[in-house]
Amino acid sequence: MDIELSKIYAVWLREVKRYTNSKSRMVSSLGMPLLFLVALGGGFSALVPGFNYQAFILPGILAMTVLFTSVFAGVSIIWDREFGFLKEMLAAPASRQTIVIGRTLGGATTAIIQGLIILVLGFAFTGTPVPPLANLVGILLLMIVMSSSLVAFGIALASVVQEVETFQLVQTLLVMPLIFLSNALFPMDKMPVWLQDVSRVNPISYSVDGLRTLMIGAGSFGLGTDFAVAFAGLVVMILAASYLFSKTSI
């Protein structure tokens, strides 16, 4: 067990080292969320007087950052396959389970770091009051659960599709819609009915809702439901990733 843990650590370490070794990627992946927060947030705040839209979308932007970074961390297995490193992992005396867990934790770590940077910048930019410690702990917990399940989702996806070209498709057909078809950028009660329905079945909405409740106290599903959906998602995604990745070969 000790040895298996140290192998999980090895896989985790590789993810984190790659992340810290590429400062440019770190900065560039913060660009889009910040643009949304400052430009979109600023613009809409001016449109609707009396509604602090920037504060409203801050949890949504946080979720967006975590979503992007996590899914890409998981899907990057496609690149490891293309550039060969996957063989090194698969040839090692480490179980597939170990690789999945190590990668999930590694990807989640990088996503949480990115998320925390956005969170700090967001509080500073939007002037949103920093919530009490208990809420901050809740926010961190939700980020951990959310990012882990999304990395696992990426791993599952990469185990099935395997082509590098698919990578672009993931961005346009999957990741962006998950954000736009959720409550991340618009208040649920102001949405057209069809979008409300879509948002309600989009699991991302529940994480956003949880984050929003904890940050500005304006959620609509209730924290219990939010966390329940997040944890259920985690279990499903970890199982899916483990199963699908165990089927992949070199």
């Binding site: 650590y9 590789r14 080292k17 790659r18 070794n21 490193f85 996957l86 063989k87 090194e88 005396p93």
Partner: peptide
């Protein structure tokens, strides 16, 4: 030990880290 036909080292890590992570994976 196995050395594959196609490259499998991680280009975004240092030589040391490639070896260190390998060592950890092999316990």
């Amino acid at each position: 030990g196995i050395v594959f036909q196609d490259p499998t080292v991680d280009t975004r890590l240092s030589a040391y880290d490639n070896l260190d992570i390998h060592g950890r994976l092999y316990g």
